[in-house]
Amino acid sequence: MSDTMNIEDYLAQGGVLTAPGNVPARYRGELLRLMSSFVDSELAASAGFADAINLAPGIRERIAASRITLEKADHAERVLRVMAEFGTDAGRYQTSHDWAARVERGADLGAARRPGDMRLSVFHYPIAGWTDAVVMNVLQGLATGVQMTELTRVSYAPLAEVFREIAPREARHAELGREGLEQIAQTEAGREEARAAIAYWRPRVAAGFGVTHSARHDTLARFGLRHSPNEALLARWQALVSEHLAALGL
C-alpha cells in the first residue's frame, strides 16, 4: 500500500501530521500562530499571577498562587519547545516581550490583540486584589478548560500530545480557583466583592473566545486545527460559568 493522497484532503478527513517536515506552508503559519498565542497567554498569565502570590491571605492560598505561576510558565515552555522544532528561536522568544505589562484597569480592548505579543486580550488587564485574582482565575480557568477540548485534538500530533499533558494541570488550576472562591463566598462581604470582580472579568474572558462567524475558523477547521466554532465554545463556557457561580450563591 504505497498510494498517498493530497495532504489537504488528508487533513480535511481528520488526518494527523507528525513532524515539521510533513507540514504544508499555510498549515505551518496557522499552527505557529496558534502556538504563539498559547505561549504568550501562559507567560502573561504566569506573570500576572506572580503578583497575586503576595496578595494571598494565607499559606495555602500562597502555595496555590505559586503553583499556578510556576506551572503556567512550564506549559509555555513545553509549547515553545514544539515551536522551536519549526525554527523559532526559543531563547530570544521568551524575552521578546514584557509579560508582566498591563493596561489601565478601566481600558476596554474588546477581543482585539494589542501590538506586541499575541496573548489573549484578557491577560492585558491588571489584577486588583486577592478576590479579583481568584475570580479571574476561576472564569479564565473554565475558559481554558473549554479551549482544551479543542487544543487536545489539534491535527499536529506532537502538539496535541503536549496539550494532553497540560490539560489536567490546567484543570487543577481552575479547581484551585474554585476552592479559593468557595472560601471567599462564605461571607456576605466576600460575595459582594466577588460579584464586582465577576462583573469586571466575565465580559473580558468572554472576549477571548474571538469573534463569531470567524472567517479564519474555516481555514483552521480545514486544517484540523479547530473543530468547534467560537460561538459554540463561548456558549459552553457561559453555561459552565453560570452553573459554577450559582453553586456558590454568586
Binding site: 505557529l32 500562530r33 504563539s36 523559532t88 528561536d89 522568544y93 521578546s96 501590538p115
Partner: peptide, 8 residues
C-alpha cells in the same frame, strides 16, 4: 506573531 524575526 512576534514581529521581531524570532518566531517564524
Amino acid at each position: 506573531s512576534c514581529k521581531a524575526g524570532v518566531c517564524s
